[in-house]
Design a protein around this nucleic acid. Structure first.
Lengths: 192, 192
DNA sequence: TTAACATACATACAGATTGTATGTAAAGGT
DNA sequence: ACCTTTACATACAATCTGTATGTATGTTAA
């Protein structure tokens, strides 16, 4: 069968990313060797190093994919909420659902920051999942007549709290407790 | 000179931990090789692998040291504050000061969780730095007549926010803005 | 259509790294 | 003084990563 180059590239990159994703989740970035990855994908290391400059670049592709999926799931879930408060809390639940997909907390919250740096992860977060939170907070501030001068800071702090909550929930903590506490935090910052 | 074995062990472990700390901060855990570490310490890899089962164990020793120091600095700073609110905010500032020591955010917030796992780091945090925050929150809740049923959860969420703030401040954000926002969060959860 | 080139992938190789095995010297107990 | 244990150094085997090189397949233009 004759396949175009762009098609070959696309399927090969997809296969490598999928195989790498599984192993990175299972054993972590550091303990996953490139021979394992290409074995799982049924190819050789030549393909990997042709499509990615190094192992870290492959990891970055996995992370970017995952961040995009999380963002998409959140946005598709937070369709229409009655109030700004509800929009934020619905978004929070959608975020917890998205991070409940096995391995995502490890990829996005543990290995990602260590391997790619917190700056790179911050950029990804801002580009993807934090956008809707920030929009929600902006509305909330507007509705409660609060000055939005610390909007970015509150977004950052709450995003960090959500991340920690996702980690705790995965470790066995009560999701309901964390959702209640987050609701208290949201209500707390919306008082004038 | 004749030195006892326990004395030799202590100085050697200290030298290895100090050398490793510097390199882990400078280049990260993954990019620091054990030959470099022992070179910096002026010994051989034999000494390292005699005192630590592997590279990760040496890293764990560095992290434990650092977490203890942070905890000590916080406790020595938060001597006596007028109110529970002040105690928490003073503790927050002390935490920011402690994490402003170069490399600590990388050690404790980036490499630590990735290398040792978030469970291990959570245990360290609970044993050390989060204890005073939890005590402060308990007082705050008592003073404002709030039910303390979510005390652990709020402690966790706020600790995560503090960590993110420390990272942001190191990346160049306004420390004052983050302190103001944190004060708002604290005040928000203390309303009945 | 085919010669010329670029892209996709495989194989081979060099350097470096980790952990272990083994050897030696110093300390501790009897 | 002897024997055991601990502290450390050296030597070795098994990886792993990135690069260099080789081959096949796709692309382009005369």
């Amino acid at each position: 069968m004759r396949r175009s180059n762009s098609e070959r590239t696309e399927t090969m990159r997809g296969a490598l990313i999928r195989a790498a994703r599984g192993l990175f989740i299972e054993k972590g970035y550091a303990d996953t060797a490139t021979p394992e990855i290409v074995n799982a994908a049924g190819v050789t290391r030549g393909a990997l190093y042709h499509h990615f400059v190094d192992k870290k670049a492959l990891f970055a592709a996995v992370i970017a994919d995952e961040a995009r999926k999380v963002s998409e799931e959140i946005e598709s879930a937070s369709a229409a909420s009655a109030t700004a408060r509800d929009a934020i809390l619905d978004g929070t639940r959608a975020y917890f659902d998205a991070l409940a997909v096995p391995g995502r907390t490890r990829l996005l919250l543990l290995d990602g920051p260590a391997v790619l740096g917190s700056d790179a992860m911050r950029e990804l977060d801002e580009e993807y999942s934090e956008a809707s939170l920030k929009a929600g907070l902006r509305e909330l501030f507007a509705a409660s007549g609060k000055a939005p001068d610390l909007l970015d800071v509150f977004t950052d702090l709450l995003a960090a709290a959500f991340d920690r909550a996702a980690l705790a929930i995965e470790a066995g903590a009560s999701r309901q407790d964390y959702e209640r506490a987050i609701a208290v935090l949201i209500d707390g910052i919306s008082v004038k």
